[in-house]
Design a binder for these strands. Structure first.
Lengths: 186, 186
DNA sequence: GTCTATATTAAGATAGAC
DNA sequence: GTCTATCTTAATATAGAC
C-alpha cells in the first residue's frame, strides 16, 4: 500500500468510531489498520502500547469532548433552562441522533486496560455532578437534584440501548426534548 | 482432568453468566471450558456450532425467563399495580440488585450470530408491548402508554449502566421502586 | 460422552528495509 | 514515519483414544 499520512485527530476519530461500535474486544488491529489507512506496524510506531494505548487516546478524546461541550456549557451565563437545551443539542450530535451507541456503555465492559474503565467512571461521575449542580441552581433540593441527575443520565443511556436493539430512536429523542424540564423543574 | 458430568441447565447458566458479563467477543472457549468444567472438545460435542450455538442457547434461556417471569406475570389476575410490583421484584432478582449487567445491552453489540441480535430485538419488542398493555389497562391512552413503556425500559437499562460504571445501584433501585407508579399513573 | 492431542486460523507484536 | 515480512501467542475447531 502507498504511504498514507494520517494526522492523530483523524486516526483517533476513526478508532473511536470502531471502539464505540464494536467494543474493545470486538476491535482488532487489522480493523484499526483498515479504518485508519495505516499498517499495523505504523500504528505501533505511533502508539507503542498497541490497542490499549489507542483506546485510551480515544477515551481521552471523549473526556475532552464532554468537558468542552457538556461541562463547560453547563457553567455558562444564560438561564439554566437555556444551558440544558444547549447540552441537549450537543448530546444529539454526539450520539448522531441515537444511531451511535453510548461510549460509556460499550467501553465499560471488561476488556482493555483498567485505566479505561477508571476514566469512564470519572467522566460519568463528573457528568452526574454537573447535572446535579444545575438542578440545584434551578431550585431543587440537593438530594433530589442528585437523584434526578442520575435518573436523567440513566434514561439517556438506556434510550440509546432502545435505539440500538429494537432500532427506534424516538425514546432517545423524547429524553433530549424533555431534558430541560427533567433537570430544572420539580 | 477427571470426567465431569454437567447437565445442560448448569452448562448454559454458567455460560450465560460469562456472556452477560464479558459480551460475546469477550468470552473464549477456554473460559467456557473452565466455567463449565468441560473440555473444549466436549463443548463441541454438545454444541457442534461452538460459541455461536452456546450463546444462542443462553439467549433462549433468557427469552424463556422473560416469558415466564415478566410477560406471564403481567397477564395475571391481580390489580395492574400488584402485577407490576411482582415484575419489579423478578427484575431485581434477574439483575442481582443491579450488580449484573443487562443481557440485552451487552449481547446486542456486534459479534456473534445475527440470530442473537434478532432474538434480543424480539424480546425487547415483546417487553415494550407488555408494559404498554398494562399501562393501557391502567387507563393511560395508548400513545402515552407506549412511550411510557419505552421510557421505563430505557430507564431500567440505563440505571444498570450507572450501576456498572460509577458503581452505584441506587438509581436502579429507585427505578424498580417507582415502576408501578410509572406504568400505571398518569 | 469426555478426554488428550493437534490442526488451523487470526490476533497481538516486533525487526528491519526504505 | 511507513512499509513488508515475520514472530509469538491465543483462539476456534477437529481427530481419535478411552
Amino acid at each position: 500500500m502507498a504511504h498514507r499520512i494520517v494526522n492523530d485527530d483523524e486516526l483517533i476519530a476513526a478508532s473511536l468510531d470502531l471502539f464505540r461500535t464494536y467494543g474493545f474486544d470486538g476491535v482488532s488491529l487489522k480493523q484499526l489498520s483498515e479504518a485508519t489507512g495505516l499498517e499495523k506496524a505504523s500504528l505501533y510506531y505511533r502508539y507503542p502500547g498497541g490497542k490499549d494505548e489507542i483506546v485510551m487516546a480515544a477515551a481521552e478524546d471523549v473526556a475532552n469532548w464532554f468537558q468542552k461541550n457538556i461541562f463547560e456549557t453547563l457553567k455558562g451565563s444564560s438561564s439554566p433552562q437555556k444551558r440544558v437545551e444547549a447540552v441537549s443539542n450537543r448530546l444529539r450530535e454526539f450520539y448522531w441522533g441515537g444511531s451511535k451507541s453510548c461510549v460509556t456503555d460499550v467501553l465499560s465492559l471488561p476488556g482493555g486496560p483498567d485505566k479505561l474503565r477508571a476514566g469512564l467512571k470519572s467522566v460519568m461521575k463528573v457528568w452526574i455532578d454537573a447535572f446535579s449542580q444545575i438542578a440545584r441552581e434551578s431550585g431543587l433540593p440537593p438530594p433530589l437534584a442528585r437523584s434526578r441527575a442520575e435518573d436523567v443520565i440513566a434514561r439517556i443511556e438506556g434510550s440509546l440501548i432502545v435505539a440500538r436493539v429494537p432500532g427506534d430512536t424516538s425514546a432517545f429523542e423524547r429524553t433530549l426534548k424533555l431534558l430541560p424540564e427533567l433537570l430544572t423543574k420539580k
